[in-house]
Design a protein around this nucleic acid. Structure first.
Lengths: 127, 127
DNA sequence: GTAGAATGTTAACCGTAGTTAACTTATGAT
DNA sequence: ATCATAAGTTAACTACGGTTAACATTCTAC
């Protein structure tokens, strides 16, 4: 039973990045992820090993990176939290874009499912 | 020039715990911190070494732990974020106490000064 | 088709933050 | 005062997540 394994903040960041790059229509290469997250290719390589082991991505040796169905689901989850938090910061608290982006990036790893759900509902009411 | 050195989430947790235990009127022992944070005494010992090195606590060999003025300031900063976030979660989003506590514990390390300030101001307006 | 550039992989390393186990020091009850 | 227990320290280890450097593979331009 594929339980929702806990991902580290780092793994969540990688997943989210892969989704963003995929959605932009590009095939996803390690080097793109490295540039996006400002880490080395070697770090990406290690992280992809982890995501591959838990079945969230597929990548042939020297090949491109693809989210599995599971992986896409988890990535969307992270991205949705990010977008929600940034909207809150920018539209409710009126934080400037760059700071909101930075804070959302860090907060997105910290909130529970319950909090995300209720926060989303609340935002829909007040905006 | 004592700049506001960046603290790791872990260090912030230790500082916050020391403040909470001090404020409860107790002299702070390593073992109390260990129990509060559910970590080993050895972990506390290492962490205290770090906080001592950057001048946020004082502790004689085998002695009790005291916040320095700097340390108390930083600890209050963390605790204030925690309290604010928990109030938001409980009173605005109506998250249950236990979940709110857990989430606040993680979010408190993620928000910038600007966000904290504006969030606090916003809370004062709406509550 | 091949050479050079770009990309991917691997190995060895670092710092952080935790652990357990063995030890030292302090405390408190008799 | 002493001795058992509680508390603090230290050492050796683990896992994670990053790094650089060297190497392997793939791509691309000619």
């Amino acid at each position: 039973m594929a339980e929702k394994a806990n991902l580290s903040p780092s793994s969540e960041d990688y997943l989210e990045t892969i989704l963003e790059l995929s959605d932009a229509g590009n095939a996803v290469r390690s080097v793109d992820i490295a540039n996006h997250l400002h880490v080395s290719k070697a770090s990406v390589n290690k992280a992809m090993g982890i995501l591959r082991d838990i079945g969230l991505i597929e990548q042939a040796h020297y090949g491109l990176i693809h989210l599995t169905e599971q992986g896409r689901f988890r990535a969307k989850d992270v991205l949705q939290r990010h977008i929600m938090l940034k909207r809150f910061l920018v539209e409710i608290l009126q934080i400037n874009d760059a700071t909101a982006e930075r804070d959302a990036c860090r907060m997105e790893h910290a909130i529970s499912d319950e909090t995300r759900t209720k926060w989303l509902r609340w935002l829909r009411e007040v905006l």
